[in-house]
């Protein structure tokens, strides 16, 4: 079985993983910089890049140690090519190319979004394409029809803020610390989702695209008005109502696409797939429609090397290999 070493540095996690085949994780080391970026209230690209170059070889060594292998056991190197922060991606790709060339082993550049989808193959051992997939995180909101292990059809995307970005911005307005998404999810459980009427933006009738900036503005306006009138803000209710407005649109569009494409599965991926409100609503609606709903474990929802290794493996066995000119593509699109 192919042993893959995979590196992910597209944003603020330095991660390295070792996989056997496409689904078995031997190690998945993730060094999060959240504590550092919290001081700045968000990810600072130059600070992230500095942290990556400081940590990367330690993380690689830890991944090898935990998998109980050495460099010589590696058959394949996988690395995130994009999308992501250019300076951050460059550290991972330079390290990965150095390793692949030194070992004279193939290297595969991986689309980070595909990686998020593939996290599900690790958790759900029987999962096979085709299926409908919702990829939601601080950086991305994509509705994808997964046709095979290496073919993806991008059906919908956000036209402005990513879903997770809207969570973080609303959280900041509520005075919550960075990253705010998980905190909103927590507060929402204590609040009433019907307390405040925030808009649901569905765009054109048959569009699968998303837009969250109007909703974000509506929440900020609501908070300002309350403050001006000196009225008490029940942040649990704001969190619950805002969150419900986001996830209802995410869920309805996912269900509609699955039905249109006759998918019997909806798979969720990305950091916001860890949101319990989203998980629960998707499960409930899936049950009503006879569609199975799957999502990765919490740790595999975040950016991690294992998901990149899985995607790299599936491309490798299809014969898709990069060469040593492989470069970062910060705006890499999902291609079929």
């Amino acid at each position: 079985m192919t042993i893959t070493l995979a590196i992910e540095t597209s944003c603020d996690e330095t991660s390295c993983a070792v996989l056997r085949g496409g689904r078995e994780v031997l190690s998945n080391i993730i060094s999060s910089q959240i504590e550092i970026h919290r001081e700045y209230g968000g990810v600072v690209p130059e600070v992230a890049s500095r942290k990556h170059i400081e940590n990367i070889n330690m993380i690689i060594q830890q991944a090898l140690d935990e998998a109980n292998i050495g460099f010589n056991d590696i058959d394949l190197v996988g690395v995130t090519q994009g999308p992501g922060l250019v300076g951050a991606l460059l550290v991972g790709i330079s390290s990965a190319k150095g390793i692949a060339y030194a070992l004279d082993k193939p290297i595969v550049g991986v689309n980070h979004i595909e990686g998020h989808v593939c996290a599900n193959y690790i958790v759900h051992k029987d999962l096979e394409p085709p299926f409908t997939c919702l990829v939601v995180s601080g950086g991305h909101t994509y509705l994808v029809q997964v046709k095979s292990y290496t073919e993806y059809e991008l059906v919908g995307r956000t036209r402005d803020d990513a879903a997770g970005e809207a969570f973080d911005k609303v959280a900041r307005a509520l005075g919550l610390s960075y990253p705010g998404g998980p905190l909103i999810d927590k507060l929402a459980k204590e609040g009433d989702k019907d307390a405040i009427e925030f808009p649901r933006v569905y765009l054109e009738q048959d569009s699968y695209d998303f837009s969250f900036s109007g909703l974000k503005t509506a929440v900020l306006n609501y908070l300002n008005q309350k403050k001006q009138k000196d009225e008490k803000i029940i942040i649990e209710d704001v969190a619950a109502s805002f969150q419900h407005s986001v996830i209802e649109v995410l869920v309805e569009k996912s269900i509609r696409l699955a039905k249109e494409r006759k998918s019997d599965k909806i798979v969720m991926a990305g950091g916001v797939a860890a949101n319990e409100g989203l998980r629960n609503l998707m499960m409930d609606r899936g049950k009503e429609e006879g569609i199975k709903v799957l999502y990765p474990s919490k740790i595999l929802c975040t950016d991690n090397g294992a998901m990149i290794g899985s995607a790299a493996y599936f491309h490798y066995i299809k014969g898709h290999v990069s060469d040593l000119h492989l470069n970062v593509e910060p705006n890499l699109e999902l291609k079929g």
Partner: peptide, 19 residues
């Protein structure tokens, strides 16, 4: 160049690390 430096250093660190 911050970015340029990291490309060279990451590459060389990988070489040294592997062997």
């Amino acid at each position: 160049s911050f970015t340029g430096l990291r490309i060279g250093i990451a590459t060389i660190k990988s070489f040294a690390h592997v062997f």
